[in-house]
Each structure stands twice: as C-alpha cells, then as structure tokens.
Design a protein around this nucleic acid. Structure first.
Length: 980
DNA sequence: CCTATCTCTTA
DNA sequence: GTAAGAGATAGGT
C-alpha cells in the first residue's frame, strides 16, 4: 500500500446492529430465515462498492475490508471484568444473521476480518495505523464515537446512513474536543452501554470543558483540587482510578497482530455472477436486479447460491426435547415469541393439540367430491398426500386409493385443525373365486377421471404437497405419468433435524411428536397367512387408516418444518435431502439389468463346489452335521475334536467366526479351512446368485433396488431389496457376481468412484499438513503414512509395512482403539497402542481433531459435517464406559463419513442437470457410497466420462473449498466387474 | 410365524 | 475401531 491509496474499513458489527434496528422487524426469506439485517447490510455494502467505482465521486477506495467482532470476550474483560457485562444477548432473530452477513461479505469478494480476543474497533485501529504509516488515506465506515479517536489528517469516518463525512472539524463540533482527546473525554464520561464506569456526574459537556481547562486527563486528575464545584471535585478525586481504567477500556489497540496484510485488502473487480447468486439465494429481488444490471449479469442464468453452511452452524437455537415439545403448552413467552425458536415451540404444541378422530374422515365416492377437495387444497396451498397400494415394492405397486389432508383455516386458537379424506379407487370384494379377486366394491369413482384431477393437483407448483417418504408415492404416481411438483417430506425433515434420535417412520414420529398411536397396517390387513391385500380391505376401515396417515403427516409437517430455521438446518434439507428424492426415484425406476443366465450358471458351479466341500467336511468330522449351523460346528470343532484356542461368543457359544477358523487353519488344521471355503461358496450362492434373480422385475426385466434416505445416522444412503451396496468385490470368486450386472446391448456401464474420499475429508477437517500435501502431490497415502511412522522410505517399501499403515489410517477414520487395531492386524494390544501413540506424535492434528469432536459431541449431543448435517449421539454421556466409548468412536467417524456422504449427494443432485446441459444421454443407476454407476450408449461413453468426473470432483464447491483435491476414477465396460 | 444370534458382504 | 442389509439357524410363540 502506498501514498495515494485509500483504504475503506467497514465496522461490520456496528453495521449489523444499525441495519437490524433500522429495518422493519421480521423480514423473512420464504423459508422463514430472518434476513432483515442481512438485507440492510447488503444494500449498504452495495452502495459503498458501487459508488466506490464511480470515479465522479471524490473518494475511491483502492483497498477494502469489513471488520467484525469475534466474540464477546476480549482482553478488556481481563482489565475490567464488568466490561460490557450488562450487555443483553442479541435478539434471537438476529443471531442466525451474523453468519449469513459474513457470507454476504464474501459474496461481495471483500475480505471479512475478525480476531479472537479483540473487538472490531481494535482491528480497525490497527489497519488504520498501518495504512497511515504507508502514506495512504483511510475512511472508516461507521458513526461510532468509539472510533472517533482515530480521526486525523489521513483518517476520516463516514456515516453511510446519514451520508455524512466525519473529519476533525465534525468531531470537535460534536464533542467539543479534537479526536486525540476523545479517549480522555470518554474516560471521564464513561459509557453505560458498554459498562465503562467513568466519573459519576460528568457527561460530555462537562468533560469537554474540563479537558479544555486542564489539557488532558492526567493533568486533570493531578490538579483536581482546583475545581470549584464541591460535588464534582469530590467525585473526580474519589473515582480517579475508575477514570484511569476507563481510559484503558476505551483506548483502541492499534498493534494487533493481524493475519491479513494490507496488500491482501486490495479491492478487486466485482464478481457479478457470484454476488447475484448469493442475493438471489437470499431472495433480495430488487437488489439482485440492481446488481445484475450494474455488472451486466444475466440474473436468470445464475442459480441461487447455496445458503451458507457456516450460517447453519451458527444458527442453532436451543435444541427442543422432542418428548417435552409434544406436550408443551404454549408458554407465556411462547405466546408472542416471534423468534424461530418460539414459533417452533408453538407449532409443536399446536400439532399435537387435538385428539385425532379416525371416525371423522370423509370417504370420496364421486368425482365432484374429489374436485371440491382439490379446490380446498388450492385454497390452502398446502395438502398432505398419501397413496395406498398393493405392494411395498413401489415398482410393482398398484394404486388402490389415496388420502388427502388440509389444515382448516381457524383463528389463532393454539390448536391445529385438520380435515382429511380417503379416495378409494380399486378396492375389490374379498370373496375371491378361482377367476380372481371378485368385483369392485361399490362407492368408488372412475379411476381415469380421478387420476386426471389428482394429476392437476400434484403437478400444480403453487400447492405444496406433503408426504411421508414421498419417494415411494412419487414412484407409484410416476407409473401413471404423474409428477409431484413442490413437495416436503416429513421423513426427511425428521432425518435432517433428528438423525440419531430414533426412527423416522411415521408411526414413531406420530408417537414422538403427537403422542398418538396410529392404526397399524396389520390392524387393517391382518398378518401372516390370514393377511389380505390392501385392495380387499373394507372401504370404511381403509378410510380410517389411510386418512389418518394423511392427517398425521400434515401435523408432523406443522411441527417439524419450522424447526429447520430455528435449528439452522434449512440448507441441509433443501440442498442435500429434498432434491435428492426425485433423483433417487428415477434411479430406482430405471433399475439395472441383471443377467439371469450368468447367475444361474454361477449358482450351479457354487452348488457343486459346496457339495464337494461338504462331503469332505463330513468325512473329516466323522459325522453328518449341519455345516451351516455355527452351534453344531462349534461343538464338533471344540468339544468333539477338542481343537485348542476356542473362544466363546457373548451368549456362551463357541465362536466359529472366519477369524477363529483362519487361526485354526494357520495352526495346521484341515477342517477349518474347508469350512471357510464352504461358507464363502454358500454365502455367494444364497445371498447373491440365488436371491438376485428373484428381484428381476417381470415387466422391466431389470432389478430395482430401493434406496433409503433416512436409514443411517451419518447421512449415507442404504440400499435394500436387493442391497446392491454389498455386492462382492474383494475376491475373484465374488467378483463373478458383478459380471451379471450388465448394460443393455449397445450400451455400457460407467463406474465413477471417489479415490480415498474419507481420508481426504479427514485431511480437510482435521487440517493435517502432511496429508494435505500428500494428496496435493498425488502420492500413495498409505505409503506416506508408513514412511512418516516407521521411517521407511516409500521406494521399495515392504508390503507388510504399508498394510499396517493402511489399517491405521482406516482405524483413525473409525475412531481407533488399541483393541480394534490389534484385532485387525492380529497383533498384541500393547503393540497396537504403541502404533497409535506414534501416529498421534507424527500427526498431532489428528489427536486434536478427535478430542475436539468428542468434546463437541458431549457438549451438544451431536456432531456436524462440513455441510452442516448433524448426527446425534444421545448416549455419549452414558455412565457405561463401553457405551460411551462406542458413541465416541461413532461421533469421531460421523463427520468424516457424513461429509463424504454429503459430497456424493451434492454430486448426485447436480448430475442430471449437468449431463443434460452437456447434451448427454446417460442415466444414473446406482450409488455405492463413494461410487456412482451409469448406463449410456457405448458410443457416448468417452464424451460422458469427463462430465461425470467434473461434477463429482467439484461437488463440494462452492459451499466448501476443500484443502484437498477430490479425485474420481471412471471407466466404461459391458459389466460392472470390468467397469469398476 | 416371528425374533434373536451369528456370520458375511460392502464402503 | 465406523456405517449398513441379508441369509441361515435356533428357539420361542
């Protein structure tokens, strides 16, 4: 920085409060996030930076920074513990805006500066001094009197709200003393807001007069005896010390060791699209337009930005206790409490307020009734929707009926009133004869006409559809060419808010939040052998069951949706959960081709191999027994044959785990080896080659897995019916199963997987320089670890050394214990402990990360991914050491596993639009935690792979700029084994 | 017929 | 040591 340069320093914290109080209260984004202060702040910044570029205005900044207070604790508290002690907490609807405002600053591409232990004013003073010494001019954007001591020939202030320049004459005019005497003046007057004592009875006028008379504070205190007024003289003598302390409190530190140097504050050209994206995300329409115009940005071509994830972290309010919340009466403060927390509390009470009456539902028997309900839903703009079908398998399910629920417009009684109905469409008579299930039950409307009405409602973007696990209903409706536009999903809401706090199924949520036990599916259909299809349930019973589900769903939404804002989870829900549902729906709908012949052939081979082994096993055992029974096997091995080294499971049975059998085999016994081999073959046969063909859909001839979005605590998906996330890959035998997952003729499968994503996430979150460097250099990460730990050069490293380092790396991710590592490596626990100590010595950041994560989990009851997702561990404070240790390990693992899960979710949400934008015909079929499988025409594969890789490698951006690059390997082939 | 236990598969 | 789902057996209802 040099002479002629001009530094603008914005007092960000001061500005936040002014913007907050200047603007109408409770300006909210459509999702309820309060944004009044953010809006005021953005308008002010925009005014500053746009005028700054207007050279017709006299002052043009070359450098710019926005300075914030870091926290309420500063060095001043050590000088004087009462400093700012009477400050009340900021208003609750302002709290979530602090982080958003920092995000806003970054969206303007401006340095956003704060430092622990110092106030914004100290940083401003420091930068002002540095700039002054470099010969530059400074303008402090603030009207705070605390900063006026900085004013001088090169430094002025600017009150942007009053559009007023504050220089030396203005300070003298206002306070009666020049800027350099402001410290003494404030020392005398004190400050009731900041709890700076000063001297009683002395206000600004008297103080100015005294300073005028004596020159400065020290002289005044020395010669206080000369003051004529008795009371004033006594006070000055008595409170001289208080004045001296006050002087130190108001004197700004201009020697802070600032992290950003002056040169880094250079004002860069504005990034139009980046700022427009942010403003659009905040729904500031007129400012968005102004900025777009001024920067020549096409606002319609810019996607609204990710809501700041850092914001989410700071937005957490007091966690609601779900059990209490359900029964909580509206508290005295809750009644008029317009904070997000107050609203959430009220809504929870309202949702569970009314007794649910399952006899009060309407059954819709003709199309006019349905039309009336659709009109009602359009009126309210919100409708809960649920389908009833013939099957849990959405791909084979036939629609039997559907239910709707709407909130009733009612004055603010503190109760939620709901109307619900059921529209039966295909209920048949149970009197099934050999020709089929009998005729239709009476009182049902024509299906065709009903679906037309329903389609118009579900596809109407202005009506919010609410469902519980809507992915299922989407899949069912997709069979009828109906898309559900504009929706919320109570299961996903619960998952985002309460992952780890229990199940997210409707029955569990209803009990937890509404204190209501729903009618069970089995209560209407019966169970086991006497179960009847839902289509044969009597319509009145079906109405009670189905409409209740819609009512409960609507009530749950009422209670849960508002918690997104009060708990700072909006961005997780809106970016990582809700948009993924339709993506997964389409993946499930597409399915993947599985070659029946290949499986059948494999099954035969496996059967032969297993039979041969079984015969040898019986021979060696000397008797016929059930080889698949661990109980019988344990008795043969350890009781009958008396092999040594047997251990017991927790139920007292002999353990026959693969590890135990391997140990026996290593000791030279023949039988255990054969058991291990037999188990591998029978496992592959029963779980894969025999079971998979049963999942081939007769219509599509493909296998359609079901992805569960709310099954894990960490944010991973799970897969079932069949589980395609545990198809064998480690052994050559097992990999043969993968050759049966094939592309259609003329197509290929593409497999794209993240390389070492969890270790990369670890390097990022724990900030480990060696790991970061190794990934940047692209070196073998396990070899690097081994080299650091054991001092072995990477070149020519023995594979055993690398293997151990690899196990330790994984162990770290899993929240390592000496016990676990010892088991994994088959070494002594003491030796494993030595390894761990060594690791922590070489990578001390890892230990810090683990300790900090444990502490965070204990403090909050949850841990957080880099995108703000929370995983709760309510048992982490357990007095049982085993339970506690387990929860600690899980809590250490969750941010790593969960962040990786978030990254691939982001990639999946962006993938389809990206492929489309690139003009690519490729269909995403499967997700296996760090891998995505696509199918595409063979000729297109080479063009598509770079698009896929690009989306996956940049999936964390722009929310998180990772310290480590993400690497994706992708390959195309005819089957999954070759593509992987 | 349902549930718990054990084992094994994946990332 | 983390996170899942599933099959076979065994034992209760």
């Amino acid at each position: 920085m040099k002479k002629g340069d001009h530094l603008f320093l914005v007092d960000g914290s001061g500005y936040i409060f002014r913007a907050y109080h200047a603007l109408p209260p409770l300006t909210r984004k459509s999702d309820g996030l309060p944004v009044g202060a953010v809006s005021g702040f953005c308008n002010m910044l925009w005014k500053l930076v746009s005028e700054a570029r207007d050279t017709s205005v006299g002052v043009t900044p070359t450098h710019f920074a926005v300075i914030f207070d870091h926290s309420s604790k500063t060095f001043r508290n050590e000088l004087y513990p009462e400093y700012k002690a009477n400050r009340s907490a900021p208003p609750e609807d302002l709290v979530p805006q602090f982080a958003v405002i920092r995000e806003a600053t970054r969206a303007f591409d401006l340095p956003c500066i704060e430092m622990e232990g110092f106030e914004a004013d100290d940083l401003i003073a420091t930068y002002a001094r540095l700039a002054r010494e470099a010969g530059a001019d400074v303008t402090v954007i603030s009207s705070d009197k605390d900063l006026m001591q900085l004013v001088g020939p090169q430094v002025s202030m600017y009150d942007s709200m009053k559009d007023r320049q504050i220089g030396v004459p203005e300070v003298i005019e206002k306070w009666g003393v020049p800027p350099e005497k402001m410290i003494d003046l404030q020392a005398l007057t004190g400050d009731s807001v900041d709890n700076v004592p000063g001297i009683p009875g002395i206000g600004p006028k008297t103080a100015a007069q005294l300073i005028e008379q004596f020159g400065d504070l020290d002289t005044l205190l020395e010669r206080a005896g000369e003051i004529k007024q008795n009371k004033r003289r006594e006070n000055i003598v008595e409170f001289a010390d208080k004045a001296r302390i006050s002087r130190e409190l108001v004197r700004l530190r201009d020697d802070v060791e600032v992290s950003e140097k002056l040169g880094e504050l250079v004002l860069n050209p504005l990034n139009g699209p980046k700022l427009v994206a942010f403003l659009k995300g905040m729904e500031f329409t007129s400012l968005t337009r102004r900025v777009a115009d001024a920067t020549d940005t096409d606002a319609s071509a810019v996607d609204a930005a990710d809501v700041a994830v850092d914001a989410a972290a700071e937005m957490r309010g007091p966690d609601l206790d779900p059990g209490d919340a359900a029964n909580a009466a509206v508290t005295a403060t809750g009644q008029n409490d317009d904070t997000p927390q107050g609203l959430a509390k009220r809504r929870a009470a309202e949702a569970g307020s009314a007794k649910i009456d399952t006899t009060a539902y309407e059954t819709l028997s003709d199309i006019e009734q349905l039309k009336a309900w659709c009109a009602m839903a359009r009126e309210t703009g919100v409708v809960a929707f649920d389908t009833e079908t013939t099957s849990l398998d959405a791909m084979q399910a036939e629609l039997v009926g559907f239910s709707l629920a709407v909130p009733e417009a009612a004055p603010d009684t503190g109760e939620l009133k709901v109307r619900a109905c059921y529209a039966p469409l295909a209920h048949s008579n149970g009197v099934g004869d050999l020709l089929g299930g009998g005729g239709l039950q009476p009182g049902q409307m024509p299906v065709r006409a009903a679906l037309d009405e329903l389609k118009a409602l579900l596809e109407e973007p202005a009506v919010l559809k609410i469902g519980q696990n809507l992915k299922y209903d989407m899949l069912v409706m997709a069979q009828h060419n109906i898309e559900i536009k504009s929706f919320d999903d109570t299961m996903l809401l619960s998952y985002v808010l309460d992952a780890g706090q229990g199940g997210h199924g409707m029955d569990a949520l209803s009990e937890r939040w509404l204190g209501h036990k729903t009618i069970g599916y089995k209560d209407v259909t019966g169970s086991g052998k006497s179960a009847i299809p839902f289509a044969q349930v009597a319509i009145d019973k079906a109405t009670a069951y189905a409409a209740e589900d819609a009512e409960v769903t609507l009530r749950l939404w009422h209670a849960l949706k508002v918690r997104l804002v009060s708990e700072g989870m909006t961005s997780v829900y809106e970016r990582l959960e809700r948009p993924l549902a339709p993506v997964l729906m389409r993946m499930e709908q597409r399915g993947i081709r599985v070659d029946r012949q290949i499986l059948s052939r494999l099954s035969g081979e496996l059967a032969q191999g297993a039979a041969a082994l079984e015969a040898e096993i019986q021979e060696l055992a000397g008797e016929n027994f059930n080889v698949g029974s661990p109980k019988q096997l344990g008795e043969i091995l350890f009781d009958k044959m008396s092999l040594p080294g047997g251990s017991k499971t927790k139920t007292g049975q002999w353990s026959t785990s693969a590890q135990a059998l391997e140990d026996l085999a290593a000791a030279g016994h023949e039988l255990p080896r054969k058991i291990v081999d037999w188990r591998q073959l029978t496992k592959l046969k029963s779980t894969y080659t025999d079971a998979l063909p049963g999942f081939i859909n007769p219509e599509t001839k493909r296998v359609h897995t079901s992805f569960a979005m709310a099954a894990t605590t960490t944010g991973r998906l799970s897969s079932s019916d069949p589980n395609i996330q545990n198809i064998p890959v480690r052994t050559a035998e097992g990999r043969k199963i993968r050759t049966a997952f094939v592309a259609e003729p003329g197509n290929v499968l593409i497999s794209a997987d993240y390389s070492q994503i969890e270790l990369r996430v670890l390097a990022h979150v724990a900030n480990i320089p060696q790991l970061t460097q190794a990934f940047a250099d692209g070196v073998d990460i396990h070899a690097m670890t081994a080299s650091e730990m054991f001092g072995v050069p990477i070149e020519g490293m023995p594979s055993e050394v690398r293997r151990r380092a690899k196990a330790i790396n994984f162990g770290i991710i899993y929240g390592i214990s000496a016990f676990g590592l010892a088991n994994q490596l088959s070494i002594e626990r003491s030796e494993a402990g030595d390894y761990i100590r060594k690791y922590f010595e070489r990578f001390p950041g890892i230990k810090d990360y683990m300790d900090a994560t444990k502490a965070e989990a204990k403090e909050n009851g949850y841990v957080t991914t880099i995108f703000g997702r929370r995983a709760h561990y309510p048992e982490i404070r357990s007095s049982n050491p085993q339970v506690r240790a387990f929860n600690e390990r899980a809590a250490i693992n969750a941010p790593i596993q969960g962040s990786a899960a978030d990254i691939i979710r982001r990639a999946m949400v962006r993938m389809e639009p990206a492929l489309e934008a690139a003009g690519m015909q490729a269909r995403m079929l499967l997700q296996v935690h760090d891998e995505l499988i696509f199918e595409t025409a063979e000729a297109d594969a080479d063009k598509i792979i770079p698009v896929i890789v690009e989306v996956m490698e940049n999936a964390a951006m722009p929310a998180i700029d990772m310290a480590v690059p993400l690497q994706v390997d992708a390959r195309a082939a005819k089957n999954w084994d070759q593509a992987h």
